[in-house]
Every structure is written in structure tokens, then in C-alpha cells.
Nucleic acid binder design. Structure first.
Lengths: 211, 211
DNA sequence: GACCACACTAAGCGCTCGCTCACCTTCGGC
DNA sequence: GCCGAAGGTGAGCGAGCGCTTAGTGTGGTC
């Protein structure tokens, strides 16, 4: 009924770990509002309103507006990290694992665009402590992708001049999907994921199924 | 002396067209503040303070805070478009022109990161009319890159499955440089430009100097 | 030297923000 | 059937926001 439930749609189940129910509703409302307007342009009254509650109710479940962003950001980064770890640790060649990592990472950014936007672009609105915690998670994200690329380069499967720079570019490409992806656009998250996996394999000079 | 003059540094000359002097100082101060904190988190008092003026002085030169963002965004997009047009219209193969376009576009995003951040990431803070005007410029930006890729694909110089999607990815890759590039990091804008030009040529399957 | 256009400031208006507080309702345990 | 805890509300506080207004200093014109 509420905008929260509609928009979140398939994204909502990701927040199952958040309890009690009112706290989850507030969190989902905050994700939407932050994604639409940005953290600073969102008011606590707006968040509470989307969740169907009074402004004061927010402060029963969260100490500050920033705590909401912090919680969203941590859960989101943990999810992103989990996706990459799954792809990175499966069996198969570096080519297969990189393609898997990129396509699933991109699917998450496109399909869960609302969440991904907040996670990827509102980082700087966090205070120093919270930001530091999130940055540690981001370094792990980087590490997963770099690991696959390094392995492929070492084995000769890939042809990469600058492993670090290429890793940066691959991640950047995937993350930026959250900025431009349009749910009403011509492409499904799956299609973008496939396209991007192909493009990334070209970037690292994988010899396999691309040529 | 002021933070404005320091940080803007080499970027400042780009605002030469803005007169009178006080209006330019305010604009440069706004670019910095918007880039650091985001549009909504920046106060008019902060902008005026950076420019060494009282809060009221801002309203002599600009009608609203949003007009500042609008002006910055338009000038920035025009500059970006000019860069791509120059690369697109020079002589040479599609490969050479795409490499030129990407490397100069990336150099602009990395070297002028302060400006580029505002231009690329604060678009949604504009009102409907201003946003529509800027979006028209962005479509022209897209068109320039797509033109080169289309040409290379048609002549057989490139091997591209999805021209539209690849264009999107190339632009996305370049634009996102403004988000992660760090002036104190290990790479110069020139180095990132070169790396990215190489990566993009791989993405479009250019046969030339990459293989 | 009277005049005015211009650039600028000090003070502050009306508003909305994040957040608090006093109070209310519901409900399981005994 | 009374009680305390948990979860909620309406009203509103202090602060800071975007922006305005009345007044000041300055430089060019005749």
C-alpha cells in the first residue's frame, strides 16, 4: 500500500534481518528517500511519513538520522561483499569467475538500484567513525575483484598491464550502474550484467569465449 | 589566500568567462563547497564566506543558490562537450579518435575533479527546467561518443555487439573517475587517461595498437 | 561638490530542520 | 483487574536555513 512497499518490491526481502517490523519499515522508507533526494535533502518527517508513522516514532528505533544511513550502508556493503565472495570462491577459471562476479555485481546494482545508490553515493554523508568502518568493507570488496584479476594475470589467462588500475576501472564501471540504470529503460538487470561481463573480459584481455 | 584560490588552482582559469570578479569568486567558492559537501549540505553562508564576502552579497550576483548550481552545471557540460567534439572531429581513424576522446575526457574528470563532481553528481538537485536544459547537453555528449563507436563498428575497425550499451559503459567509466580520483593518489590524470583509453579500445575490440 | 548608480554589509524575517518530552494506548503476567 | 514495559503520538524547542531589507561606503560625472 505505502510507497515503501511498492517501490522496494523485490528489494525488500534483503532487509529481513532488521527487526522489529517498525524499524524495518523505517529503514526501507529511508532507503527510498535517500535514493530519491539524497541524504541531506531528506527530512526525518519524510522518512517517518513514508513508513506511516509520526516523526517522533523514528527516534524510538534509531538514535539519529545518520544511524539510519549507517545501518543501510553497512548492510548493503555486506551484501555486495557476499556477492563478490560467492563468485570469487566458486570453482572455475579466472575468466568464468570474473564474468560471474561482474554479472552478479551489476545485477545487484541495477536490480537493487534504490539501495545501491544509497550505499555507493551517500558514503560521504557519514561521520568519520562510520565512514571508516564502511571504507574497511570497501577495501575488502576491492580485494575480491583484484584477487581474481591477479590470478588470471599470473596464470596468463588474462593480459593486463596494470592490475591495480584495471581493478579500479572494473569496480568503477559496475558501481556506476547504480547512477544511470533506469528501471523503465530498455535493458533488464540481467542483460546489463551479461553485457558488462563481456566488456570486462575484453578489458582484461581474456582469451576465452569472447573472441 | 582564500581556500577558493588555493583549491581551484589550475581549474580556475576555466571560469574566466564569468564576470564580474566578485561573481566569479562566488562561483568558484560554490564549486568547491558543492564538491566537498554536496549541494544540499552547503549553505549560502559557507559559499559567501569562502569568497570572503557577507551572506547577502551572494544575492547581488545570483538570484538563488540554485542559480549558482545551474550556471556551474551548464558551463561544465559545455566544456565537457567541447572536449569530446574536438576529439571526435579531428582527423584519424575511429581508434585514434576514440582514444583521444577518452583520454582527454578522463583527464578533465580527474584534473578538474572538483568541478566534474558537481557537474556529474549534483544534477538531480536542479529544478525541472534547469535539469531539462542540462539533460539536452548530456544527450549531445552521449551522441559524440556514440558517433565514434558507430563509425568504428560500421567500418569494421571495431568489434561491438551492442553499440548503445557499449557507449553507455564507456561514458559511465569516464564519468565515474570524478567520484574516485584522488589528487594525492598514485596516479596523475594523464596516466589515468592513458590507461582508460587502452581499456576502452579493448572494450570495443579495436584491432590496432592494443593487440 | 552635489549627485547617483553600484557593490556591499548588518540585522533579521519567516520557516523548517533534527530532535525531545509529556502523555497515551496496548498487552502479557500474575 | 491491576501493573509495568514497549511502542506510539502531538506539540513544540532551539538552531540554522534561504533570502530580504534598510542603510553605508565609494567612485565616476557634470
Amino acid at each position: 500500500m505505502s510507497t515503501a512497499e511498492e517501490t522496494a518490491g523485490g528489494e525488500a526481502q534483503a532487509w529481513g534481518e532488521v527487526t522489529p517490523d517498525a524499524a524495518r519499515r523505517l529503514l526501507i522508507a529511508a532507503v527510498e528517500a535517500f535514493a530519491e533526494r539524497g541524504y541531506h535533502a531528506t527530512t526525518t518527517r519524510d522518512i517517518a511519513g513514508r513508513a506511516g508513522m509520526s516523526p517522533a516514532a523514528l527516534y524510538i528505533h534509531y538514535k539519529t538520522k545518520e544511524e539510519l544511513l549507517h545501518r543501510i550502508s553497512r548492510i548493503g556493503h555486506e551484501k555486495a561483499l557476499e556477492i563478490l565472495r560467492t563468485a570469487s570462491r566458486r570453482e572455475g577459471s579466472a575468466t568464468e569467475r570474473l564474468a560471474d562476479a561482474v554479472s552478479s555485481f551489476v545485477r545487484w546494482h541495477a536490480g537493487g538500484r534504490t539501495t545501491a545508490r544509497v550505499v555507493q553515493y551517500e558514503l560521504e554523508s557519514l561521520g568519520p567513525d562510520a565512514r571508516a568502518e564502511i571504507l574497511a568493507l570497501r577495501r575488502q570488496v576491492d580485494g575480491e575483484v583484484r584477487g581474481i584479476i591477479e590470478e588470471g594475470a599470473r596464470s596468463g589467462e588474462f593480459d593486463v598491464v596494470d592490475v591495480h588500475g584495471t581493478t579500479l576501472a572494473v569496480l568503477s564501471l559496475c558501481i556506476d550502474v547504480a547512477r544511470w540504470f533506469n528501471v523503465d529503460g530498455p535493458r533488464t538487470p540481467e542483460q546489463v550484467g551479461e553485457l558488462y561481463a563481456d566488456l570486462v573480459l575484453r578489458m582484461v584481455g581474456a582469451q576465452g569465449p569472447t573472441a
